[in-house]
């Protein structure tokens, strides 16, 4: 299935947000996921099933003043 992640189209095998984060080897600490403009709390990640054409924003903290 194809979804848009941070503005780029990507083919993924994961069925849920939780799986996606795990497959990509992302550190969940401080990671925020917006699913179709809605913020998804971490505890809900395994419950949110991804569908073709979904828009995902994955954000985390970086250096800044």
């Amino acid at each position: 299935m194809k979804v848009t992640i941070n503005g780029d189209l990507a083919s993924i095998a994961a069925c849920t947000i939780g799986e996606l984060v795990a497959q990509r080897g992302l550190d969940p600490k401080g990671l925020v996921v917006e699913h179709n403009q809605r913020i998804v709390k971490q505890e809900k990640w395994p419950d949110i099933r991804l569908q073709d054409g979904d828009h995902l924003e994955l954000l985390s903290f970086v250096g800044g003043g």
């Binding site: 992640i5 941070n6 503005g7 780029d8 990507a10 990509r24 080897g25 992302l26 550190d27 600490k29 401080g30 990671l31 925020v32 924003e57 994955l58 954000l59 985390s60 903290f61 970086v62 250096g63 800044g64 003043g65």
Partner: peptide, 26 residues
């Protein structure tokens, strides 16, 4: 202070939070 950005899906950068002790307020 910290800033919020889209993560770079390509490069496996280190999480900045790992360098900030729990006792420090973000």
């Amino acid at each position: 202070t910290v800033a919020l950005r889209r993560i770079d899906m390509g490069a496996g950068t280190e999480n900045i939070l790992n360098f900030i002790p729990k006792t420090v307020t973000l």
